[in-house]
Write a protein that binds this DNA or RNA. Structure first.
Length: 499
RNA sequence: GGCGCGUUGGUGUAACUGGUUAACACGCCGCCCUCUCAAGGCGGAGAGCACGGGUUCGAGUCCCGUACGCGCUACCA
């Protein structure tokens, strides 16, 4: 057990999206690899935009991904007193000052313009920056509103060694006197994180690259507070297909991890996919592999393996089949068809319960059949949801499954003779004493010879009659899985479907 | 505008401290198998490493510049 402590600190302004999920994952992998602690902290200081529902969404997302934490969840909003105390401490030590500029003068609507203007001028120092402490105290005592700003020294620079991006430096003159405490007494983000990270003994801050410039400000605060600065590792961003920033507002549900849960992703598969977005193992012996178990990921994970350029997450809204990154879909399929059946089973059962296809007998008297059937059909499924859609014909006794129009046309309507052949075939099947793969195949082929038709005609016709589809596993496996009774009934029913 | 970061096939990644025809995966295309395919097997196309200079016997790997992208630049996080 090491004393390494990391944290995932999302702000609950929306659901957990894939970018946040990956940040959480990398923190988690690092903590597990190093034998450290993972802490969850909700950054809810912006009460306007935070809600309990969003917090629940984040917790749900993490639980689904299997990212557990050792401490927390802590809520940043419950530490405001400590934040204020830290701000006052900096005021006392001369690292901060009260700024009495009325809020209206720094109104949002004019901000962009001000920035643009200010950029052309040498930095104009705030008139309150060097206001005497006594006068400052007096004005504060009269109730005049003020913010507390950090007093960035005029000369010098901050620097830190980022585990991913290397040495980072920033001239003090490029850092503005940031606000620590709002005029209503609310602590702001940069103050909050630092105080909390100190309080929680965070040793490694692993977060998105969009925080890299905040880091310089935060280092200043660490120094002003006289505390050691943690190690930093900034992660490349995950971009939308247009290479823009992933945005909840613009991209909606498609970037939410709960979407992937609901669409039938296997958590390990999604974790596997996420891990490879911006990271690759250093270990050469594993270079040409892509599928890694959770434990392998933990063993292989290193901060050095994280790379610097942003990754594109290729989702594809509107395309029903390839609605999200094709590699993610491929990987999920890979997990579904290769993972140990007993690990897959609970997920399949949950899926069938969700769609009311589950029957308790599947777990008892029909268990052997159920296991065999799942093992058979999982071969070409890509999501757990496929068990309910494409798998439906195997789980219902009636004909309440969808007959794909194209399949009906291709396999049933193709030859009118099928309308008499299929019911006749049904009779042959009904007469079979042993309803096995070989027996049904022998019966069908003999029947085809007898009638002078190609076996394929009957096989494909039967496929659609039994499952409503044009694709699926080897036909005689399907027949056995569907069973004698239902096979006979559905073959006889084929004519009705066509008409 | 300023500051910072990045740039290897469509996408995700690899290429030891510069040294063979730039590798792997997804996707795509074709072939084979076959009762179908969204399965399996085999093969192929696709980047000469953003661009332009330089250093070097030799650069995707080092240096400089340009372009493009992204981030930050709030009394948001």
């Amino acid at each position: 057990m090491s004393d390494i402590r990391v944290r995932f600190a999302p702000s609950p302004t929306g659901y957990l999206h894939v970018g946040g999920a990956r940040t959480a994952l990398f923190n988690w992998l690092f903590a597990r690899k190093m034998g450290g602690k993972m802490i969850l902290r909700i950054e809810d200081t912006d009460t306007q935009r935070s809600s309990e529902e969003m917090v629940r969404g984040i917790l749900e997302g993490m639980a689904w991904l299997g990212l557990d934490y050792d401490e927390g969840p802590f809520f940043q909003s419950s530490y405001v007193e400590q934040h204020r105390a830290a701000a006052n401490q900096m005021l006392d030590s001369g690292w901060a000052y009260r700024d009495f500029t009325p809020k209206e003068e720094r109104d949002d609507s004019t901000i962009k313009q001000q920035i643009a203007d200010a950029a052309r001028q040498p930095k104009a120092l705030n008139p309150y920056r060097d206001l005497g402490r006594e006068e400052s105290d007096e004005r504060a005592a009269t109730g005049e509103p003020f913010v507390i700003r950090f007093k960035v020294p005029e000369e010098g620079k901050t620097s830190f060694d980022d585990a991913v991006y290397g040495t980072q430096e920033r001239d003090y003159k490029d850092i503005e006197d940031l606000v620590l405490l709002r005029s209503d007494g609310h602590p702001l983000y940069n103050l909050g994180v630092v105080v909390d990270d100190i309080e929680m003994g965070i040793t490694h801050v692993i977060r998105g690259q969009d925080h890299i410039s905040n880091t310089h400000k935060q280092i200043l605060i660490y120094q002003a507070l006289g505390k050691p600065v943690p190690k930093f590792a900034h992660l490349p961003l995950i971009l939308a297909p247009n290479k823009g920033k992933l945005s909840k507002r613009k991209h909606g549900e498609i970037v939410s991890v709960t979407t992937y849960r609901d669409a039938g992703f296997v958590p390990d598969a999604f974790v596997n996919f996420l891990a490879l977005l911006g990271w690759a193992p250093d270990d050469e012996s594993v270079r040409d592999r892509e599928i890694f178990s959770r434990q392998e990921l933990i063993n292989l994970f290193t901060l050095e393996g994280i790379h610097k350029s942003n990754a594109v997450f290729n989702f594809n809204e509107g395309d029903a089949r390839n609605w999200t990154d094709q590699k993610a879909l491929w990987m999920n399929a890979e997990y579904i068809k290769t993972m140990p059946l007993d690990q897959l089973m609970p997920m399949v059962i949950a899926e069938l319960k969700k769609t009311r296809l589950w029957r308790d007998e599947f777990a008892v008297e029909k268990k052997a059949w159920f296991d065999r059937t799942i093992d058979l059909i999982r071969e070409r499924f890509r999501t757990l949801a496929d068990f309910s859609t494409y798998g439906r014909p195997y789980f219902v006794d009636d004909l309440s499954f969808e007959f794909d129009e194209a399949a009906v046309k291709k396999n049933l309507r193709k030859d009118p003779a099928l309308m008499t052949l299929l019911p006749e075939l049904a009779d042959r099947f009904a007469a079979l004493e042993e309803f096995s793969h070989d027996a049904t195949e022998a019966a069908m082929r003999a029947f085809a010879d007898e009638k002078g038709v190609k076996a394929g005609l009957l096989i494909n016709g039967a496929r659609t009659a039994l499952t409503g589809q044009s694709v699926g596993p080897s036909m005689f496996d399907v027949i056995v899985a569907v069973g004698q009774e239902r096979t006979v009934a559905r073959l006889k029913h084929a004519a009705i479907i066509v008409n």
